[in-house]
Amino acid sequence: MPHNDDFTIGLNEALSWLDQKRHAVVGEFDVERGYFWTACAAVQNGNPLYWDEQLAAQLTGGPTAPLTLLSAWFRPHYWMPGRDTIPLPWQTHFDLKETLALPEAVATDSEVVFGEPIRPGDRIHCCETLRSLSEVKTTKLGKGRFWVIDAVCHNQHDVWVGTETMTGFGYRNVGARQGQQG
């Protein structure tokens, strides 16, 4: 690799992204209940909050989405007419890989904080922000940089519904794997 020892490639550009809102996306469809049940079925989640209409009305004022479906509401469809490529969630993560010339990356940590419940008919929008970019670090995977990215999500009334925070490590020189590659 021609730039194997140069870890300043693209650094100034990447640093200019710190605390800037990037890649605002709006969900391509309204939140729908079919997904609630599909998601619950996938993990055999029998929480009556998601299956019992009367209980949902009593506790949450009506149906709400399983909390951990948050990211589903702004993920793009696999295919749409006229679209040549699939937009990637966590686009900033992939931008950093490319800009910093770090061909490999893993997501090492994930944190999600939940706000107002998401309900059928909601339309979720989300915006990414790069929160930090580390000095060059060496791990058992290789040499590279850690970064922390927030994805802040609101509903159509601009009410906060949740924030996902992802820590990634972009690196060169693959060794033993750790985390999920992305």
Binding site: N45, G46, N47, P48, L49, L55, L59, L67, A107, T108, D109, S110, E111, V112, V113, F114, G179, Q180
Partner: peptide, 17 residues
């Protein structure tokens, strides 16, 4: 929620894979 029941409301979680 299997443990805590439907009134339990998760505020946040964090994990390391």
């Amino acid at each position: 929620t299997d443990w805590a029941g439907p009134k339990a409301r998760i505020g946040r979680y964090k994990f390391r894979m």
